[in-house]
Design a protein around this nucleic acid. Structure first.
Lengths: 337, 337
DNA sequence: TCTGGCACTCGGTGTTCCCGAGTGCCAAGT
DNA sequence: ACTTGGCACTCGGGAACACCGAGTGCCAGA
């Protein structure tokens, strides 16, 4: 049905349309890409491609524009991910290497990605539940209030103020800290609920109310952060772009954690390092936009996802290259720390 | 020069223009507000107001539009800050009360303010240097790496990984922790550099390299966070608004910490609880926008600033009311924790 | 199967025209 | 001295219209 030349025509249409933002006609197409056939032949092919739903024309007698289906075929079969230049690679490396803590890594990553792709970049914070406890700290604040600090192996720090049911002195706090750490140190966050379930019963009865209070806050912290924070950057890049849907809708979605989460993570495939590309109507909620995303994280286990969001008319090879490269570098950084 | 009626006319023009977004003419003005004079009289007053530079006309034979100077007069003398409804107050209270830590307070505040004003809200994180040390924690990560955690009285937690020049064991860490806390506990962050300056010399010689390393990281943390983080929300509210300058410029400024900082904090007046209103060209960088800001913080000392950014054509009384109310509530929350 | 030719379509642009809201000014009224 | 009604003038913006040209579909011939 679709011979090689027709595919070449489709590829040419996508490339031209992406770079010019104007419907591309048969004549210009035959000239710019050396297809060695006449415009008339191209027209025939275009008619076939339109018949199959890969391209469409905005109005009668205008050039053709790729459909979602056309972009999909282009991404799947007609394009190659474009690697970054060495200058870009170096820039990424030095920029990310300057990060001082996890927060900084995420912030730098999202800005970097936005600048690199000139799109909106989205980065999910590494998920707590997949990491493990490095240390639990109890800091006395006042007679009946302590601060609970939870440090994970990814460098993440969570803190909560705990109101205690009774007055507590420093030596007891030190003791409780030791007990908690002995129990939790090094274990995966997902296992924490099980591990602490019977902890109060193993302690002297006078400690139980205090420990129970602390544990309830601790568990609450774990649950709350289960669905993780997502940050974005590069909203200014939306100003130029033209979406089929309103700019307002896109901005609203970006500020809505839940929507972002679904856009980014819905299909965590079996091979999470693979790039996920969602085009136009394939997206939940945000039709008219495309998303290029991938997982990242230290070592084998994926911790979270990152990607970019842009108009359907997007330079997929370049964007995919940037997303993949950034994901690799940030994974590397996380693994090292 | 400007009698009462002319001022009334100016007020009417500002109010009408803000609500309709269309240049307001003499006839409509005389009708809608019961000025008890004829359109012709209004025209004379308008001519005088234009002469003085308070209003202007976009083209010959169109209605009048307030100038920056006109808005300024309106804000200073012709309007009263509009208090929130009790329903709104209650909503603020319950929404902010649910915050679990400082991060959460800031996040909730900025969203709340954006929603309340239907503008872009901007909130500066409480400044580290004005708060004091509650606790310093050292957590061993591996043989030669520890995590330095700094907890302040505002509930803020800063953490850094420190690479040590030598292997170190747990008892020594505990000892160093005690030394550091004895030295720093409760003192203002601004005083930290002075207090630790001679600390290495007061310690046994074998501890000095390690302590020096830790202190350098600690001081670095303080310096880095000196200019504080700023977050914003409500970018979607920009989509409808029409700025004289490009939407892109505004979005870029919002993502640029430095610019935001200047917009928000440049003139910290002698009475920081007062509302600061900057109109149009009064703003550094972002002409064509207005900013309503104020300080907030626990107790008497101001910790940081918050505010909203919107088009010059803004409902100042309502916006000012919302900003003031939110600042008060968040101050209250911070004081309580 | 490809190619050149040809008639047809129609979106976008430039031109013209007209309407009406709004103004400024003046002379009369209070 | 201020206010008011009247009146001529301005000019932005929308409607109507014509035109151009890029692009198409189709067909006959190579």
């Amino acid at each position: 049905m679709l011979d090689d030349r027709k595919l070449a025509v489709l590829r040419a249409i996508v490339e031209d349309y992406v770079s010019t933002n104007e419907p591309v006609g048969s004549k210009a197409l035959a000239e710019r890409h050396n297809l060695k056939v006449s415009p008339a032949t191209v027209r025939n092919d275009m008619a076939a491609l339109e018949e199959e739903g890969y391209i469409t024309q905005p109005h009668t007698s205008a050039g053709r524009v790729p459909t979602d289906k056309g972009y999909r075929l282009f991404v799947d079969r007609l394009s190659q991910i474009k690697p970054l230049s060495t200058a870009e690679r170096r820039a990424i490396e030095t920029f990310l290497a300057g990060a001082v803590d996890l927060d900084d890594v995420v912030t730098r990553t999202v800005r970097l990605l936005a600048q690199l792709t000139r799109q909106v970049a989205v980065v999910q914070y590494p998920t707590l539940t997949r990491s493990s406890v490095r240390h639990v700290e109890l800091v006395p604040l006042s007679e009946r209030r302590i601060m609970l600090v939870l440090i994970t192996n990814t460098g993440r720090v969570e803190q909560r103020v705990v109101e205690l049911p009774e007055v507590i002195e420093d030596p007891r706090i030190a003791h409780l800290r030791a007990v908690l750490n002995a129990c939790l140190d090094g274990c995966g966050l997902a296992d924490v609920p099980d591990l602490v379930a019977d902890l109060p019963e193993r302690l002297p009865v006078e400690d139980r109310p205090v420990v129970a209070t602390i544990l309830s806050v601790l568990l609450e912290t774990l649950v709350e952060r289960h669905d993780e924070k997502i940050v974005f950057a590069g909203a200014a890049n939306l100003a130029g772009a033209d979406f089929t849907i309103g700019l307002r809708d896109v901005l609203e979605a970006l500020e809505e954690q839940v929507v972002l989460m679904r856009l980014l993570g819905e299909t965590t495939t079996d091979t999470p390092t693979a790039l996920t590309v969602r085009i136009g109507a394939e997206n939940p909620y945000l039709h008219g936009t495309s998303i290029v995303a991938t997982g990242y994280g230290s070592g084998d286990k994926q911790l979270a996802r990152l990607g970019v969001l842009g108009p359907t008319r997007m330079d997929y090879p370049v964007t995919m290259g940037a997303v993949r490269a950034v994901a690799r570098y940030v994974s590397q950084i996380l693994a090292a720390s």
